Amino acid sequence: MEQFSLDAFSLAGRVAVVTGGNGGLGRAFTLALAAAGADVLVPTVADDGGETRALVEARGASYDELTIDLTAPGAPRQVVERCLATYGRLDVLVNSAGISLIGDVESFGRARWDAMVALNLTAAFELSQECVPTMRAQGGGKIINVASLFSVLGGRGSPAYAATKHGIAGLTKAYADELAADGICVNAIAPGYMATPMTAARRADPAASQVVVDHVPAGRWGEPEDLMGAVVFLASRASDYVHGHVLAVDGGYLVR
């Protein structure tokens, strides 16, 4: 049996695209991949004043940023072309860009539904599709989708969020089934309740926050840093035989 080495987790010489990678959970993914050695391209609509760039470069990695609306026609191809023009290769795609618009069943209109489906699901579908020829030609690659607890739960207050995250889980499995033979690993990370700007209002309400904590065996909200090990694992050679898996990083939420 071949001896295992921690070098299997290294991303030195690899290039990653992380959508929405300069804010929220996306920044945690970006910094983790950079710390493991990957150069990173971040397609984004948000300007963070160069903060993420500085953090990536402090980790010894290269950073490129592309201001783009991923839901616009042709945007996914532009992302791949920019990555290849800048770095000459594309090894890892993390589909982390997403939005969550709230509303009950009766008030949740088509405009909010369409906006969430376009970014949370369709953009991930199209960008993954655009990456496949390059990854196949390189002999493999890693596609990591960002799912959610609401890939398996109901998601009260946002029917579109639950629907798109269920869709992400299905997309992950469908792509994995088709692409595994090409050495392209397609998996997903399902974060639990995380302390991000998206959850700030709930965390600021002591009673609402406690409802979450009471359901989490770990007894706390997750932090973006809790996802870093998972994304490095799924992006690295250490996970080369992992295909179509949705990895919950939720403090045990789903077991209670």
Rank of each mutant, 00 (worst) to 15 (best):
G154W: 03
V117I: 14
D182T: 05
A12S: 12
D47R: 03
R202C: 03
A54N: 11
S209N: 13
N22Y: 00
A137H: 11
L247Q: 07
G252K: 03
K173L: 05
S5D: 13
L234V: 06
R14W: 02
Q138N: 02
V80I: 14
D47S: 10
V232Q: 07
M198F: 01
L25Q: 09
Y161I: 08
G155S: 06
R89T: 04
K142D: 12
G103D: 03
C131T: 08
P43W: 03
A8W: 00
T30K: 09
G183S: 09
S62F: 03
T44L: 01
S209F: 03
G109T: 05
R256M: 05
N145Q: 11
F125D: 12
A147F: 03
G37Q: 05
D104Y: 00
A208H: 02
V232H: 02
Q210P: 11
R14E: 08
E126I: 00
T86W: 04
L227H: 09
Q78I: 03
A97H: 02
I144F: 04
L11G: 08
R110E: 11
P206S: 01
V231L: 01
Q78Y: 02
L119S: 12
D205F: 00
N22R: 02
L41I: 14
A162E: 00
E57H: 12
N22E: 05
E178K: 10
G141M: 14
A180K: 12
L70A: 12
G219E: 06
S100N: 15
G219Y: 02
D47A: 10
E2W: 01
V249M: 10
